[in-house]
């Protein structure tokens, strides 16, 4: 089951570029939360701060607190420990090219030293079923490489890989932006099914997508969070003029 995320006074920089400014936000557990905004507004940086991926870039810097399930991830834990609890799906599908489908899904466990084959088999099957890929790949799990799948399948494989470590939070950074419409709708269905079990944070530039899958939506602009409310409210009756302008397509 997922846990909630509390973000307080979060600031982030790339070199001298202040990409996130004073973000305060509570993300509810076991729901999908969408982050929207024009490109370059900091929404991707924000999710990368939630699993400490932002700091993998040597010029990046972060201040502020992020509590995931009450644990202060910057003060009380190492990045590796956080990332085991917070799964991430990237914009472009990035399966491990030299690994089989099976190994891709099991990677998070195997590479962390888990070796019970019986349990691994079960988890791979369950994760692939959860990511709606099982029926398509079950016959050549160990024969085909992850890279041999189509783009949409690869992205679902990446979701399965993230699910296999049973994360409490699932971050998705524009997971469908590199995919065709059919694959996109499959991914959306998937998010819809998964959000009761995991806390999902999805970054998207597609407002319809946010409206379809998320209960809560945050609007980012120029490194600041302009508004955070229920999706319904954001899309029907936003309280900030800038949000309204963005929603109605008056800029961006």
């Amino acid at each position: 089951m997922g846990v909630g995320i509390e973000v307080a006074n979060l600031n982030a920089w790339y070199g001298t570029n202040h990409t996130l400014q004073d973000i305060d936000l509570n993300i509810p557990a076991n729901h999908a939360t969408a982050l929207i905004g024009p490109s370059g507004c900091g929404k991707s940086t924000f999710v990368r701060c939630l699993n400490r991926m932002h700091e993998t870039n040597p010029i990046a810097r972060v201040t502020g607190t992020v509590l995931i399930g009450g644990l202060d991830i910057y003060a009380d834990a190492k990045p590796v420990e956080i990332r085991r609890r917070v799964g991430m799906v990237f914009q472009r599908p990035n399966p491990f090219p030299t690994m089989s489908i099976y190994d891709n899904v099991a990677a998070g466990l195997k590479l962390n030293g888990y070796s019970n084959h019986h349990v691994l088999d079960e988890i791979v099957e369950k994760s692939l079923k959860n990511s709606a890929l099982w029926e398509e790949v079950k016959d050549d799990l160990k024969k085909k490489s992850g890279a041999s799948l189509s783009g949409g399948q690869q992205q679902r494989l990446c979701i399965a890989r993230a699910l296999a470590v049973d994360p409490e939070v699932l971050l998705m950074d524009e997971p469908a932006s590199a995919l065709d419409p059919v694959s996109t709708s499959k991914i959306e269905d998937l998010i819809f099914q998964l959000k009761s079990q995991y806390t999902i944070v999805i970054v998207t530039h597609n407002m319809q997508q946010a409206a379809r899958v998320a209960e809560k939506t945050g609007f980012f602009l120029n490194g600041r969070m302009v508004e955070f409310d229920s999706t319904h409210k954001i899309f029907t009756n936003p309280s900030d003029k800038r949000t309204e302008d963005y929603i109605t397509g008056r800029f961006g």
């Binding site: 557990a29 729901h31 988890i123 369950k126 009761s196 209960e215």
Partner: peptide
């Protein structure tokens, strides 16, 4: 599991529940 943020009072959307209890325990 530390202090869980309180759940929303939004209308619960029909998500598919985890299929079986054993899987959850695994």
């Amino acid at each position: 599991r530390f202090n869980q943020s309180q759940l929303l009072t939004e209308p619960d959307l029909p998500g598919e529940r985890p299929s079986a209890q054993p899987a959850q325990q695994e």
